[in-house]
Structures are given as C-alpha cells and as structure tokens.
Design a protein around this nucleic acid. Structure first.
Lengths: 253, 253
DNA sequence: CGGGTTCTTGACTAGTTTCAAGCAAAGTGG
DNA sequence: CCACTTTGCTTGAAACTAGTCAAGAACCCG
C-alpha cells in the first residue's frame, strides 16, 4: 500500500506561482506578499495512492495539507468497524487543521482517488498567524465552511428521509465538484462506491442501493461506471428538498 | 417573548476584568494586552429569555457572542418543521462566528435557559486578527473544537444504536457541564426536555423516551425534574461505547 | 480464466416512527 | 382558590422503514 511519496526532488513539484488552483474564478487572489509566504510555507508535496489513509484518528500530525488534485474524505471508525464518513475534500480544500491546532486528530483521512497534497508544517502556522492576518482569517473562513457542511450533513442524517438524503448528497457533491472545476458537459467523474454514500449518510449498503434504484426512473441524473451526469438539477434539488443555488467566491491557502 | 435586553446602562454589566469565567481552571489566561483588547471588543451584554432565538437561519448578523451564563443550542429547521439540533453552547462558548465570517447564518441559535451573552461586533473582528494573532489562533481553536464535536455527533447519529446515542450524548453533556463548572456533587441542572435529546440525536420523541426508560434500570444516572445525577460514569461510558476521559485546558474570548 | 470488488434483488427480521391516549405537574385566569 | 389549559412524560399497538442475510450478476484485474 502506497502511504505516500515525497516529491520536491523529482520534476513533479508544483510551485505556488504556477499553482493551477489560483486560476479558478471561485478562489480569491493572493497579494504578492501572501504568495511569497505561502510558497515557503509549503515545504513539500505528497502523493497518496487511492485507498490509503494519510492522517490517522488518535495520532497527532506535524503537517496540514491542501488538496492539489484528487478526492479524499474524512471519517471516523468505531471499534467494531462501523464507519462514518464526515466530509469530502476536493482540490483547494484544507485537511488536518484540527491536528495542527489541537493535540490529536479525532478522525482519519483517506485518499479516495490518487491524491496530490501540498504539505504545510504546523511549526510555521504560528508564523502565518503573526505575519498574515489575512491568511489567518482565511483559515477561520475555511473552518467555518467545514462546519457549515457538517451542519448540513447532520441535518440530513438526523432528519431527512433516505430519498432526500441521497438526492441532497449527490447534489452537494456535484456542486462542490463544479466549484472545483471538475464538471464538463454536466458530467463528473465520481470516485465513490455506494458503500461510501452509505457510510456518509448513515445507511446500510443495501438500503442505499435500493433507494438509488428507486431514484433512477426519475431521470434527474445518470450514474454508471464512475461517471455522474446531471440531467435535471432542479428535479434533484426538489427531491432533496433544497434549492439549487450556485457557488460563491472563497479563499484557500 | 423577550428577544433580548441590552444592559451596559444599568448595573448588571460584567466587565472583562471581573469576568467570572476567567477564574475557571480549564480556560487559558489572558495577557494584560489581550484583556484590554477584549474589554473594548465587547461592546455590550445581551440577556435572552429561555426559548427565544437570538440568531436566525438565513440572516446575517452584525455580532458574535460568547455565552456568559446559561445554555443555548444551535439548530437547523426544514420547511415542514423537522428540527435538528447541531450542538449546545455553555458558558465560555462562542456562538455566531459563522455569521461573522461568512455572508449568512445557515443555522439558528436559541436560548435553552435564560442566557447572558457578551456581544462582539463583527466590524472589529479584523482588528482582532491584525493586532492579536494569539486571539485569532484561539478563534480557530474554538472553530476546530466545534468541528470535533460535530464530527462526534455525526458519528452518533449515523452509526450508533439508539442506546449508545443517548448514553453518549448524556455523557458528553455532563462532561461539558463539568468543564463549565456547573456540576456539584455529581449533579447538574439539565435544562433539556426529551424532545431536545430526540432532535439532537435524530430520533423520534417516543423512541427517545422508551430508550431512556430502558436505560433507567441500569442506574448509571438519575434524571428527573431537570436534575441530572451521574451515578456510574464508567457504566454510562460503557453503554456509550466510549471512554470517560476528563477535560483539558482550552482558550476562550 | 479464476478471484475480487461492486452492484443488485428478494426474503426475513429488527428497529423506529406514528398514532392515540392517559397522567402528572405547573401555569393561568376568573 | 379552583377549574382549565398547557407542557412534558409515559405506554401500547399498528404501520413502516431500514437492516441483515443470502445469493447471483457484472465487471475488473492479473
């Protein structure tokens, strides 16, 4: 199992000046000083193979990460193997802040696809707070957004019906993928298995499958062979009991 | 319905130098400069009557708050009235950061008991980030802690059995009350109704009641007339499938 | 061409919700 | 001070949702 490979040495390294994420319209721009700081804040790049966990529940981590490419997810496990997926991380999402700010991680993070991560040392985090209040503010913004997503998820799992849950989650993931620039022609590559959905929504695999199957004839979306195609966003939003709003600008580091 | 009463004018105002929370061992101490800043950051005090919401889903707020005394809770509602309680706020807990950092609140906050709040204007938040990186860091810390609690809650609602959920929540609330100095002789005043528990755990009221009733004969706790007495913490932790760890120092503003 | 993973379905069972009703305690108003 | 209302707790029965078990199909990989 590939736990990860470091890559400042070989030719694969992405310098912040050329960061592909910076072009995205949904992300705020850096000043020259911020950029210079972030460049030295990023000490390495990490490649993690699909299926391996690069942050572990119960350990403390020397680093925090921004996803450069690929999908990851945060999750918690109970002793007997029950798993709850808490949230997903896409390119430009920050991961591991909890471990950097507090003593210990209380969740794990696994790569859903092959993932490339920017590595930031927690030792320089204080520097960031001291010298770049703007970036410190952005960190708080990101933490708030994570909280917002968790709130919404908790509402789903606690109070929405199975159909609403699935519709809502699919819509949510689609919109995030869209924000991350991964959607073309209303289509995204969706790396999830039904087991992932089940573990996100607090449902069994079988029930997830049956609900999905009951949703299919409504033709709001098509999902097959890892490709997800949105056919009728409004219909899906209606099934979810939500409105189909589009994204707004946001910061990242 | 008392929406709130402002009180710098009358004799009730608590100045930060005399803040009763500062004595608590579980909270970190301020430097003199921090204290001076926080004193002018706090522009008012708000009293909210039990049962009224002082922050509303879908609105933006000019203020953020720290709970000085009383219990509050964050929640979300669906159009048809289904409610999900997201988390509780006790003295020294911060509320409304989301609204201050982002455009809009995506949840509401209601006073569970009569509550006194310290009022901070979002307009001075940037000042805080610029001049007091230490406090900015504390805000991030608080946001991370909120996230941690939400993670745990999501795990409960998604993957724990009804019995485990209730046991876990009661233990959690007890431990937080303890951290807030509200426990004496293993007893706290618990302001919740069973409906609150149900809405926190994503269960129906009836099922919550029956589960609670099934738990009673194990004598791990006694809960009657708003008084909660912890009788056997280890037993409750066992029912919850958790360990009964005790709290660690934390910041507040 | 196996062996593994993922998806799918049916049958059965367990867990949960809904409905309905009763009771106790506290609060309200004449 | 006593009906009367309201709120919160409790219980049983019926209906339904969701989970478990089991097995087969489709697909991928080496």
């Amino acid at each position: 199992m590939i736990v990860g490979a470091t890559s400042r040495q070989n030719g694969q390294y992405t310098y912040c000046e050329q960061c592909p994420l910076r072009c995205r319209s949904s992300l705020r721009e850096f000043t020259a000083e911020e950029l210079a700081f972030v460049r030295q804040f990023k000490v390495d790049e990490l490649r993690v193979g699909a299926g391996s966990s690069f942050l572990q529940q119960g350990t403390s981590s020397e680093h925090l990460y921004t996803v450069l490419s690929g999908w990851a997810f945060r999750y918690k496990m109970l002793d007997d193997g029950r798993r709850q997926i808490l949230n997903y991380a896409l390119p430009a999402d920050l991961v591991g802040l909890q471990g950097a700010v507090m003593r210990e991680m209380e969740h794990s993070v696994e790569a859903l696809t092959n993932v490339v991560l920017c590595v930031f040392p927690r030792s320089k985090l204080w520097d960031l707070y001291t010298r770049f209040p703007s970036l410190a503010f952005d960190l708080t913004w990101l933490a708030s957004r994570e909280e917002q997503i968790l709130d919404e998820n908790l509402l789903s799992v606690g109070r929405r019906s199975a159909t609403e849950r699935i519709a809502f989650l699919l819509l949510h993931l689609y919109m995030r993928a869209e924000e991350a620039g991964l959607v073309a022609a209303n289509t995204v590559e969706f790396p999830f298995t039904q087991q992932h959905l089940a573990d996100t929504l607090g449902m069994s695999l079988v029930h997830t499958n049956k609900t999905l199957r009951r949703l299919a004839p409504r033709s709001a979306f098509y999902w097959k062979d890892r490709m997800f195609k949105m056919a009728d966003r409004a219909a899906l939003a209606e099934l979810a009991g939500a409105d189909a709003a589009t994204g707004k600008p946001r910061p990242f580091i």
